[in-house]
Simulated scan of single mutants.
Amino acid sequence: MQKFTLLLLSLVLLAPLGIDLYLPTLPQIAEGLHTPVSRIQTTIPLFLLVMGLGQIVAGPLVDNFGRKPIALIGLLLYLLGSALGALAVNWPMFLTARLIQGCAVCCTAVVAFSGVRDRLDGEEAARAYGFLNGALNIVPALAPMLGGFLADAFGWRAPFWFLTSYALVIGALIILFLPETRPAETQSVKGLPVRQYLQILRQPRFLAFSFANAGAMGMVLTYVSLAPQVLMTEGQLSALQFSIAFGANGFWIMLVSVLVNKIIRKVGRPFCLAMGSLTMLVGATLLYGGVTLLPEGWQTHWALYMFPVAIAVAGLAFTVGPATSYALEPYQQQAGVASALAGFIQMAGGSSAGLLMMALPLHEKTALTLMMLIGTALSFIAWRCSKTARGRLTAL
């Protein structure tokens, strides 16, 4: 069973690697493709937007056609997208490559988590989900460092060749060792469960908590997308220095997540939602205050970006777990559909908000400040809704 879990982990890692591995190379990619860095930045939220949309479609596909065929289709798409990104000579080619990668991870992520549900239950399933989610938290801390090393040694195309090789190796392992886990009694789904989606979307409680997640995700995506421009182009950090700063913030989010689990047992979910709103507000205040109050010569220092961000991204850890649990609690008999819809709102809503912030004619720090304030407001609304929500959770 340990081998089975490791195979699923290899599929889960495709998404965070596709986002974080090439972050240190964004300015180099823009220079190599002779296009503004702002265009390259948009490929991060676009990748996640496609991933969010795909969750609505991929669920029925794995139930209709099986886990293994959809996993292999996803890996083939990922290989093609990564190779196209490595060979890109202009902006349209690179954008197409990122969209193909986004389509690929829809398939592989759904297969991975479906596989756990198929083969494991009880404490074993809980440990497997914890293992997979733990890996998702570690990769954003480590992948930029690997990408920075590869880019320093071989140029900006090297991270994409690494992803191509990774997809090729994992594809071979999946063909050889991953069994088909789709239960024989699985009912096929005809089309999309639109009626169920619409019924859930009519519930204000579900929308309030799901949009709180989308606001926190949009804030983090905006930070991630703008970080190379702020820290490397303006702040003159090297790719390696950027990777270290970015990785340290990833470990910080992990630490806060552990703290949140302990806080929930003591004071409950409403307190965590309130803290999520407060930390994003404090981060926005410090970030904008640094822009307006401090001397111009200080504006490009990395600390004026990373310290406010570190406070604000703690809001993600405080918000996402409690808000997700509140959103899904009423849907025990529709857990799959509700989870897919909540994931869609979080990914698609957050990435759309990030794209909007980058499209506005604002300086990078001002755009991030605005997104932090939006996240603050949505988490505050979720906190108010939690005061009337029934149920109690002592741990996540």
Rank of each mutant, 00 (worst) to 15 (best):
P36R: 04
T300Q: 11
M371E: 05
M358Q: 11
A126Y: 03
R392D: 06
T376M: 06
A239E: 13
G191D: 07
A312T: 03
R390H: 12
G59P: 01
L198A: 09
P308V: 04
S188I: 07
Q41I: 03
G115Y: 13
M371Q: 09
Q28Y: 15
A323T: 04
E31G: 15
D20C: 09
A353C: 11
T324V: 14
L132Y: 07
I174C: 03
T5M: 03
E296A: 10
G74S: 05
L286V: 14
L328D: 06
F94Y: 08
I170Y: 00
A97G: 10
A340L: 08
F318K: 06
L61M: 10
L72D: 10
S82H: 09
V309W: 11
V258D: 01
L6I: 11
R117D: 09
V50M: 01
I175L: 12
C385W: 15
L79W: 07
S165A: 12
G283R: 00
G297M: 10
A153D: 05
V62H: 11
P330W: 13
R67F: 15
T324P: 06
T35F: 15
L356M: 10
Y166N: 03
G297K: 04
Q199W: 08
R265K: 07
T5D: 04
Q332M: 14
G283N: 10
R157W: 09
V230Q: 14
P60A: 06
V111G: 00
G191C: 10
S165T: 04
G32Q: 07
L201M: 12
P24W: 08
V169H: 15
T42I: 12
N137F: 15
R182I: 05
G54M: 00
T233D: 11
P361V: 06
Q41K: 03
Q55D: 07
Q332E: 15
T164V: 07
L76N: 02
N133V: 08
I29K: 09
A367G: 15
A141C: 09
L61D: 05
N213W: 05
K3C: 05
L120S: 06
N213F: 15
P295G: 04
K262G: 03
F177N: 05
S238R: 11
V105S: 10
G336R: 02
V12N: 10
L201Q: 10
E31V: 11
L163Y: 14
V291I: 14
W383V: 02
A389G: 02
A342R: 01
G235S: 14
G147S: 13
I381A: 08
F154P: 01
L80P: 06
P295Y: 04
G191R: 02
A389N: 02
F344N: 02
L146K: 10
P92T: 02
V110N: 00
E31H: 15
C103R: 05
A314G: 15
F344C: 08
A58I: 12
T108L: 02
A128H: 03
G289Y: 14
A158Q: 05
T5W: 02
M51F: 14
A338D: 03
A348Y: 08
P159R: 00
L355W: 08
I311H: 13
R157D: 09
L168W: 13
A58R: 04
L226S: 11
L9D: 01
L240F: 15
T181D: 08
N64A: 04
